[in-house]
Each structure stands twice: as structure tokens, then as C-alpha cells.
Amino acid sequence: MRVLIVEDETLIAELLETVVQEQGHETIGPVSTMEQALAYAPRTDIALVDLGLSDGNSGHLLARRLIDRFGIDVIFVTGDPGPVQQGFDGALAVVRKPFSDDDIIDALGRALDKRSRSVGRRIAS
């Protein structure tokens, strides 16, 4: 699975990248702007998205575009989940900073489960 990391804090981006790769997934990025994220979207299965992007755009807006245009599963990674809970924006999960490896692994597992169910429904049709 290809996981796009959208995070403007270098240390957090590196931690996410390590956890994702240790689970056997390919990482794309990390990137920190909407433009960069959208450029990589066609090659992406799941996106880990921070709410605040370095270009001033909102992770909410990016999530909507990734979901609506590309059908990408989005997992928010944020230090302030309040805005996410008010407007979940179709994201599959929310991981709160500071996070543990298990938090990321669990969220990725939910995404994999969802993808497996979707593939199973398409095959059964």
C-alpha cells in the first residue's frame, strides 16, 4: 500500500514515515503543501494528513479533495482534534498528537480493512 504523508513538522513526518515503512508499506513524501499532496495523489492509496499545511491551506480542504477527486482514504494526524470532530470531512480516522506507533498502526489497519471490504464487494459483483 502507498501512504502519502502530509506533515509540515519534520520530526513528526520522519516518525510517521518510519512507522509506515516498518509495517511494510511504501511511503510517498513527506510533503507539506496542498499542491505537493495533490501532485502525488494519483499514486496514493491512503493519506496521513495534518490539519495545518505549510502553505496556509487546511487539511480539511485537502482531505475533501483527496477523497472526492481520487477516492483516497484519509487519516488525520493532529494535535487539535476538536475541529476534526466538528467536521470530520470523510476521514477514516483521527490520530491525535502525540501519538504512539500503535495509534498509527491501528489507523492503517482500519484503512486496510476498509480497502479489503471494498475489493471483496467488487469481486462479488
Rank of each mutant, 00 (worst) to 15 (best):
P30S: 09
E9D: 14
V95K: 03
M1K: 03
S54D: 10
T78F: 12
G56M: 14
T10Y: 07
M1T: 04
F70D: 12
H25S: 13
E26Y: 01
V31G: 02
G59T: 04
Q21W: 06
D68A: 15
D103M: 12
G120S: 12
G87T: 15
D73I: 09
I5S: 05
A13Q: 00
E14G: 05
M1R: 02
I104F: 08
I123D: 08
G82D: 06
A47N: 09
V74L: 03
F88D: 04
G87E: 15
S58L: 15
V119T: 07
E26F: 05
F70G: 11
G120Q: 12
F88V: 04
L112R: 09
D113R: 06
I46V: 11
R96L: 15
S32T: 04
G90S: 00
D8L: 12
G90D: 01
H60M: 13
D73K: 08
I104T: 06
A41T: 01
D45W: 04
D102N: 11
S125L: 14
V49H: 00
A63K: 06
I105M: 12
V74T: 00
L92K: 08
R115Q: 11
S32E: 10
K114F: 10
R43T: 09
F70R: 13
L92V: 12
Q85T: 03
I123G: 08
A37Q: 02
E26A: 06
A41E: 04
G71I: 09
D8P: 09
F99L: 11
I46E: 01
L11R: 03
I28R: 14
L48H: 01
I75P: 11
